[in-house]
Amino acid sequence: MAIIKTLALTKNYGKIEAVRSIDLNIEKGEIFGLLGPNGAGKTTTIGMLCTIVRPTSGSASIAGCDVIKEPARVRRKVGIVFQDPTLDTVLTGRENLELHARLYGIPAAIRGKRIMEMLELVDLQNRSNDLARTYSGGMRRRLELARGLLHRPAVLFLDEPTLGLDPQTRARIWEYIKKMAQTEGTTVVLTTHYMEEAQQVCGRVGIIDHGRIIELNSPDALKESMGGDMVVIKVKEPKLEEIRALPYVSEVRENDGLVEIIMKQSHLHLPDLLAHIRNVESVEIRIPTLNDVFIKLTGRDIREDSVEDSGSWVDTVARYRQRGS
């Protein structure tokens, strides 16, 4: 049974169409990723599902409760971790959870135990009586995750849960998220523009661009839709036609003196390919990532308008590819 259902969900801000007619069905227990560049409509979509943003048209329900007609019931069923930190830094870690427990009407009898449980889950029990302002970025995020799950929501929304954290901390946060989703049996809907991370965590991803979901599938299926791995070869006088004729090659292109070949199972067929081409100066193999899928679908890099850039060769090649296509 779908725990989140949306039907033609739409939000306009004046003339700007932030979210255009989104239909989603997210199953109970799923970790679902909403991927897209800044301004694609991810946060607005989550906002509507959490009843913070009022939809212009269409409908959405969470665990059978309509977000427009029964916002109070929806609010009790969802937990949210916002993109920007929203901890009360004047309170201690435990007090933050206490405040939240009261706001969500968790009875006094089970409050203490539940708070302890969540603190343990995110390994903050030893720091729980320190003011949140003394916490590191990663600890603050963990406390927010604990807060989001405190009232046992059916769905936990995470808006860019690892934004602004260093890579090591990011990896740990994802571990916590997976662990929490498992122990609590919570459905998780997250947004991120760290594609590599999304493909490790999410069971399914929806790619959103200009307010529309343009593709929705498992990360593996999406990567398969790319037609195979990409091999970039530097060679003098390439015989493109000959390469194209090979049975395992699905696409060939020349770009700035480099030959880009999309092929299936490169680990098996590469020796044969190189035997056909000869005089190869260099070879680079790229296994497709979700980022490549994104570029193929939108013609843009997901991080294009973002300040962050890993600077890795993956991005460089991605940019390069994008220019070529």
């Binding site: 959490c50 009843t51 913070i52 109070a72 019931r73 609010r75 009790r76 949210i80 916002f82 920007d84 930190p85 929203t86 901890l87 009360d88 830094t89 405040l99 939240h100 706001l103 969500y104 009407g105 807060r147």
Partner: peptide
């Protein structure tokens, strides 16, 4: 500081 945000979204 977004302190209110988490409170305003509570039921």
């Amino acid at each position: 500081l977004d302190v209110l945000k988490a409170i305003l979204v509570a039921p």
